[in-house]
Amino acid sequence: MNARYAIEIDGLTKRYGSMTALDRVSFRVERGELFGLIGPDGAGKTTLFRLLTTLMNPDEGTAAVDGLDCVASYRQIRSRVGYMPGRFSLYADLSVEENLAFFAALFGVRVADNYDLIAPIYRQIEPFRTRRAGKLSGGMKQKLALCCALIHRPSVLFLDEPTTGVDAVSRSEFWDMLAELKAKEISILVSTPYMDEADRCDRIALINEGHLLAVDSPRGIVSAYGERIYTLSGGDMYALLLAARRLPHVRRCCPFGAAHHLSVDADFDAAACRRQLMDEGFADVALQPAESGIEDVFIKLMNHE
């Protein structure tokens, strides 16, 4: 199969009653690309996955996976894609190896046929192969789910929030595994609410409330939309946030973990502002230039809507 794009979406719209979950979304995923779908809960990520994996029909627009139309050729698509839903949805009362053999058989393959593909992942859970899937830890469940989604060697892999609720180390390991799969020419569409994972993707799409905000490489997005950013911390953080918003040449000030992020104009004078805040009675004010990240861009684009 030599479709040019792994995924091609054009004007895709899905409504639930009066609520529009996806509003004219269009983008393309290249073959062999690791494409990230970044957005908060309720952005429409899962809806998009359900449309692309042929679990739902769109109201408007078209979508093609592996060159096949999602509505007309849904049967062919089902044997070519792997889908890992956001919720663990393997059989908790079957063992690890039984789950794997079951899903392999449903696709008409044997585990041995594609073992090379899953081997690096499966080896990590192999010591527990007789354990019931329901009794696995979160990270192991996720690895098993990935194995089951890969066992028929899909050409496109859909991963809906695979790292949600997984510890930081396992998350990092998981992205390493995706990089390996990419090297084996599997196109991957992965969604995540974590902005810090965006950098692991080749390209990302920022999505919010059913609208596509931007599509580009992580670096491209930051350089296209990035602004001058300062981090600000010290003393009473909430009062500081309010005070910072009144400073001259500050466009936005948002809480951002331990420090606030200020996005500022070209005329912004950091030293003068720091002095002004100290005069207003804030102790230990630290105001430093920082690099704009995906999250800053996301907040900016979200506010522009």
Binding site: L55, R75, R78, V81, Y83, P85, S89, L90, A92, F103
Partner: peptide, 13 residues
């Protein structure tokens, strides 16, 4: 309820 049917639905069964 456990969502396993979701996984079945994307197979060619």
């Amino acid at each position: 309820e456990t969502g396993t049917i979701e996984q079945i639905n994307v197979t060619p069964v």
